[in-house]
């Protein structure tokens, strides 16, 4: 699999969902045409790039995972995952800035519907690319008879967004096409970063999901 060059198949229904349609609702033919047109042509608007690395976990305590090289992950829930793992993969990817620049330009011109559709396609593309990189890390781990966890990103649950700095530090502060702003947000916005735990089968790594026991039932990031 060519991580960046193979075409990314965008799921039209997921784009409809992102722009406000729920499972049973049917978009008007006009909206459907607009989404289809953008899906047919979005590929010229993206310039994907990514970086990933795998590091051995040095130690885990209550709220802290030490990966060495001054990379410390601070989160109770991340620590509960990493105590089952031997290694952790760090990754960051982007689809580039042009698509969101175009969306901003369209919004400035008053074409907010087109901007919203384009923004949703950008988010969907970044997520698809993240899934592809996750699969690549899974396959690499599989060759060593290891299994991988779900993805976790800074800013979700009790893992503060300021920890983005640690992900980028683990990646050598050299992620092509992405910079961090003062709030530790990635620029361009259509970027995804995070960690994936890697360990031996039988340690409940693949299914580890802190959302199951979490009391924040209305959390927008809740995973089933």
């Amino acid at each position: 699999m060519t991580l960046l060059n193979d075409p990314i198949q965008i799921d039209k229904d997921k784009i409809f969902n992102r722009i406000g349609y729920d499972g049973d609702s049917v978009p008007s033919s006009r909206t459907a045409s607009l989404v289809e047109d953008y899906i047919d042509n979005y590929y010229d608007l993206i310039a994907p790039s990514y970086s990933h690395t795998v590091k051995t976990i040095k130690s885990v305590n209550q709220n802290r995972v030490d990966v060495g090289d001054s990379v410390i992950l601070e989160s109770y829930k991340v620590a509960r995952l990493m105590e089952r793992c031997e290694k952790v993969a760090f990754f960051a990817l982007t689809i580039g800035g042009y698509l969101e620049e175009l969306a901003t330009h369209l919004a400035d011109k008053g074409l907010v519907l087109q901007a919203t559709v384009l923004d949703a396609i950008g988010s969907g593309t970044a997520e698809k690319l993240a899934a592809r990189i996750e699969q690549n890390i899974r396959e690499e781990a599989g060759r060593d008879s290891m299994v991988v966890s779900r993805r976790f990103s800074p800013g979700y649950c009790d893992w503060n967004v300021s920890q983005q700095e640690m992900v980028f530090r683990a990646l050598g502060n050299n992620v092509p096409g992405i910079t961090l702003n003062e709030s530790m947000l990635m620029v361009p916005q259509k970027s995804v970063s995070g960690i994936i735990g890697i360990g031996r089968p039988g340690n409940d790594i693949e299914q580890y999901n802190p959302c199951i026991t979490c009391l924040e039932k209305d959390c927008p990031g809740r995973r089933r």
Binding site: I19, S25, P27, V117
Partner: peptide, 18 residues
């Protein structure tokens, strides 16, 4: 009432903007 969705209201708002 759920008859219109976000894209529908945006199309209308763009028409008003024009």
């Amino acid at each position: 009432t759920g008859e219109y969705f976000i894209p529908d209201m945006l199309a209308s708002a763009e028409a008003v903007g024009t």
